[in-house]
Amino acid sequence: MTGRSAQKHTVFLWHRRAGLTAIVFVIVLAITGIALNHTDALKLDERYIDSAFLLGWYGLEPEGEAISYDVGEHVITVLDHQVFFNTYPVTTTTQAFHGAVGTAQLIVLAFDTELLLLTADGELVERMPTGQGFSEIQRIGIKYQRPVIETAGPRYYMADEHMLDWDVIINEDIAWAQQITLDQTKMAVMLESFRGRGLTLERVMLDLHSGRIFGAYGIYLMDAAAVALLWLSFSGLWVWWQRQLKQKRKHHYQKHHRG
């Protein structure tokens, strides 16, 4: 093989390799590029993703089950560390949720070592760490319209109406908070509230096109695909030019040296 043909062979070989390697990314770039050029016509910004995998990938799918308690006219739910008053997010917590009760003045939510007090409208009144006095709350209930908690032991404490002082009581006539299951419609509204405005198809297309969907290094992956596309253009041009030269030489030989 001559030096020239070896060089041509190498370029052709790398042209083929680059083409095969970049083919998936080029297809993704092309499809997402065309789709993004017609965002309005395809209504990409109005279509919301409901794939659990993609929502999870974007961190929009809650972890764990929703825990809900009925507090009269309202429902308190904790879903993936987020506390909801009906479907309105109130605050966050890192502790396990042990129930909620509605008293005459306040709604009281019980966690491992903390009580949250809300108004009847769901406004946060106070975060109340239980400290050494009583910890490891197991459940919450109500007696004489006052909140009662059961701690590990077990021991039972009843608060005054302002939740400032606690008395030790016996486990008698306490209506313990009962966990409820949200119906599908309420759960759907809850999930919608958890995810905020949700994930649009346009966002996914943009992130696929830029490579950001694959994380911090995804953009370099797409950069590499773009470089491969450039290489394919130049190497393809070079291979085509070499073939043109070969054709010309062949025609010239046939014209001047035949018979």
Binding site: T91, T119, E123, L124, V125, E126, R127, P129
Partner: peptide, 20 residues
């Protein structure tokens, strides 16, 4: 400030506060 009310303990002129 998150919360509508704040708890404190007062005796004489001395007051204790737990704040986040």
């Amino acid at each position: 400030y998150k919360g509508l009310r704040i708890r404190y303990w007062k005796e004489g002129n001395r007051t204790a506060w737990i704040l986040d």
